[in-house]
Design a protein around this nucleic acid. Sequence first.
DNA 1: GCCATGTTTGTGACCGGTCACAATGCCGAG
DNA 2: CTCGGCATTGTGACCGGTCACAAACATGGC
Lengths: 382, 382
Amino acid sequence: MFVTGHNAEDEKEPAPSAASIRDVAKAAGVSYQTVSRVINHHPNVSQKARDKVTAAMAELGYRPNRAARALANGMDRAVTVLTSNTNLFGYAETLGGIEVAARAAGVHVAIRVLPSDSPEDIAAAVDQVSDPRSGAVIVLAFDREGSQALEALPATVSWAGAAESWLGRQSSLAESPRLTWYDDTAAARTATEHLLDLGHRTVHHVAIPSSSPVGDRERGWKQALEAAGAPVPEVVQPHGWSIAGAYDAARELLLDPDVTAVLCGNDDQALGVIRAANDLGLKVPEDVSVVGFDDVPAAPYFTPALTTVRFDFAALGRRAFELLELGSGSTEERAPLASPALIVRESTGPAPQGRTAARTTPPPQHLRAAGAGAEPRHKEDR
Amino acid sequence: MFVTGHNAEDEKEPAPSAASIRDVAKAAGVSYQTVSRVINHHPNVSQKARDKVTAAMAELGYRPNRAARALANGMDRAVTVLTSNTNLFGYAETLGGIEVAARAAGVHVAIRVLPSDSPEDIAAAVDQVSDPRSGAVIVLAFDREGSQALEALPATVSWAGAAESWLGRQSSLAESPRLTWYDDTAAARTATEHLLDLGHRTVHHVAIPSSSPVGDRERGWKQALEAAGAPVPEVVQPHGWSIAGAYDAARELLLDPDVTAVLCGNDDQALGVIRAANDLGLKVPEDVSVVGFDDVPAAPYFTPALTTVRFDFAALGRRAFELLELGSGSTEERAPLASPALIVRESTGPAPQGRTAARTTPPPQHLRAAGAGAEPRHKEDR
DNA sequence: GCCATGTTTGTGACCGGTCACAATGCCGAG
DNA sequence: CTCGGCATTGTGACCGGTCACAAACATGGC
């Protein structure tokens, strides 16, 4: 029976099942309550007892049972991220930031995707997630799905949200567990001013979906135009987040020779717009200037490299987690979120004297598939 | 006191705390065990009792307590996704696929990020995740971190993995809970053959990090070259996943006028290579053909649109979840994963007669920041 | 030496489900 | 009419932690 080299208790290891605090207590010669106190760092435990318990835990390979703890506490140390998307850069990066903060605080991170913005799906997701016993909720409310979910959340659950700025300023939500956001409006204003400073008569806007009738970025864009006395063209609102939508819309938009500067809702759309310009025989930035939002990792490598507004989404996620106040209530004052920064690269330039006329050649073969552009394949291509 | 319109039990709703099966049992006039049976769809419950219980549950707004169930069962209906990354397209898309499948099966999805490939971090993550009581684990083993975690997983936990194909073929892992993968080798072979068919003398390869000394894509690339009797150049292996790495490496590589075709480890790298070519005064595909992997949503909108190999990562995620056999053991035979498909767009073309010489102008200002390209800002830019 | 105070430790009940087992009801067959 | 067999229902103990409370012990002032 002396086969493998077990160091202690060779006699009987009947069940390799996990050890409980009572097993640890027995091994350490104390009561289970003392073990519980050691685990929870209660102050009133003698050093001697603490050492014995620690040793016993190590020897038995003790791991606290999360379910048991959650049951007794009536609450799990966990946070569920409610989001409509896992792919888009801003969403994925925010999720990553939440995970980092939660991991540091010893909090588990779960994820629940909102498959659509139908009221039933939203309600089902919110219902599933809003059991206070299974932890807190962070809603990624960058879009309609997210903000609907936010509004549907019952008051009984502890939540926080990363949102568009208009949502954050709504009095009804500005209270209580709280939201965090970037000032999209100011960022859009800055980007628009950059284009106006380059001499463009006005700036056109291709928008991403927003949860409000007038998105924050749209608001800032409009403010800058009005402040400069520039005409305010109609907003181009393709359906959804797809690049195809932006591409198709831009092919229409750029036919107009007055269009020399386009502010896009995000970098993906900007890529679509640049490509549309190319396909129409227009050069970026010589004929048309294009600005994006987000500064995706690929943006510096676009041709031309994209001028865009950088957001630190990871920091946004971390902040959202902090708002939950789960992390041992560290009152260390929070560093303010860095402001979004305009990164000027190659896709913006001086307004052309007279813009080249668009060549109305058909889109390239590979973009002609379903009549609307590329094959709808990814979730965001609705 | 008749303020709001409560429909029933106006008298006393003392604690708004959640109802338990015993509360439901009392309201329905049955025992708590019967309620438990109804919840778990046990066959031997009379229709009458079932109806009463269902009604009582609805009235009390009963929700099962996940923690209590997990405690009693010794296992939670949950799966934790272990991954080194949340941003990269393949990872995020696979995560999304897992979530969809898990949601359909009523299984909770948690996420745990591997912050680095240091043994300590891997061990910590694996340790934290490998408590069988808190559910199954799916490892995204597309890289070194992931496959290390896979190997460190104890046998006691139920797991599955989405991996590189070489891992899936290793006998030691091919058994038991199981891995799923795409045939990267065949895909790389196909892509390489495509380039050779276009008349290129050989194909150079810029690789992504792999968990094996020789990545699957590298293997397929080499096979195709050898089969065609083409020379096998040295593999270019930039450090990490960053686009900057690929860009810098390509600026070196493309100085050689013999380089007319480059197979890249993923679409991001391909973008970097295309940009490097542009910056050296080379045209894609006239001077250099470039192929990527993954078919990210933006690929059709690159300039030129990227020829690449499409993988259905969402399906891969779903499959990985199925391998766990948590989902009510549906033995419906699994549809085989669709094979990766080469999507030919604009970035590949016939071999040039004589390739343009590279202009050795310095990189553009915005790519010159830290000497190594763009500002290292995202997780993958290590 | 005695008591008030504070520290350290232990016991019992409970969180909300599950399992094992026993008890009850109902049916047709002998 | 009685009994075995099956369907249905109920009771007790348990999963592994937590809380509330009480007991044991140490300390110091009088």
